[in-house]
């Protein structure tokens, strides 16, 4: 009996409808893929917040540059930390003057009145209260650190907003995925109904219904996997192009190139497999609905 030809039987018998449906699916998967990539890279609002939010460890005036660099290096090695940069008293003074011009007179002959500090930024995926608190605790315990500035008083509120925004992002993705599944199901049901006479022909010639249904589902899953791969690749390319023109997008979503890093590749692969499974499932359900309608 025919090997893989049953996988593509719909496309062979109804090529026009099949191509139109594939085009529709591609557009929807483009949207879904872009949403997923943006959600994955940005972590919702996490990347934006981690970019804006810094934990500052103010050092004692007696701390030397070498000691300051050492503390920055140590902080950078903490699990939730993305970067830790030491700013010496001179750099600190320059920043102060940029923020408050005209206060040069505050500087005495003895040197800058400001101490050095270490600026710590959290990793987007670790921008959580527990990680921020543990980083603060480690730094506060150092004798060279005079105090920690992290805006602790508003952190809780920001994290709560962040949580709700992330929930909203994920719910939006869930709605989009449900719409995609519904569309796939309706397409599959319509096609299975249109081809019911042809499936009767095959059944009459010894091909079991189960085999037809499973082969079609396998074909649908494979086609959706390939389509979603193409759609996701297209959405990443668009993101690359847009980021070159819109730097804000890069700050909010993150560099599109990062998608090729292992921590992103795995969820991306799971996404592609899930789309394939969703499509295969929609094909089976569509088949079942078409069959039960005939009874």
């Amino acid at each position: 009996m025919s090997g893989f030809s049953l996988w593509w039987i719909d496309g062979k018998l109804l090529p026009g409808a099949f191509l139109r449906e594939a085009a529709g699916r591609f557009l929807l998967l483009l949207l879904l893929g872009a949403y997923f990539v943006a959600m994955l890279l940005s972590g919702g609002m996490n990347r934006y917040l981690s970019e804006r939010w810094a934990v500052t460890a103010v050092l004692r005036p007696s701390v030397t540059d070498a000691e300051g660099e050492g503390i920055a290096k140590k902080a950078a090695g903490l699990p939730g930390v993305q970067s830790a940069v030491y700013k010496d008293p001179e750099a600190s003074w320059k920043e102060f003057l940029e923020a408050y011009p005209g206060l040069e007179t505050l500087r005495t002959a003895g040197g800058t009145p400001l101490p050095g500090y270490v600026e710590i930024r959290m990793r987007p995926d670790r921008f959580a209260e527990a990680d921020i608190r543990s980083t603060e605790a480690v730094l506060a315990a150092l004798p060279e650190v005079e105090k920690i500035l992290s805006g602790a008083e508003i952190l809780k509120g920001i994290l709560r907003v962040n949580l709700w925004v992330n929930v909203l992002f994920r719910a939006g993705f869930g709605v989009l995925a449900a719409v995609a599944f519904l569309l796939f199901y309706l397409q599959e049901k319509g096609r299975a109904t249109a081809l019911s006479g042809d499936f009767d022909f095959l059944r009459d010639r010894g091909i079991p219904s189960r085999r037809i249904a499973l082969s079609r589902a396998a074909g649908a899953a494979l086609a959706a996997g390939v389509l979603s791969l193409a759609a996701t690749a297209a959405s990443v390319s668009v993101l690359f192009l847009l980021e070159a023109r819109l730097p804000l997008l890069r700050r909010v979503i993150g560099p599109a190139g990062e998608i090729l890093n292992l921590p992103f590749i795995v969820p991306l692969a799971i996404f592609l497999l899930a789309v394939a499974a969703l499509s295969g499932g929609a094909s089976l359900l569509g088949w079942r609905a078409a069959q039960s309608r005939r009874k």
Partner: peptide, 13 residues
């Protein structure tokens, strides 16, 4: 052609 295609699908490759 479609009828032949179905018949081929049901038969040996």
């Amino acid at each position: 052609r479609d009828l032949f295609l179905l018949s081929e699908t049901a038969g040996e490759r």
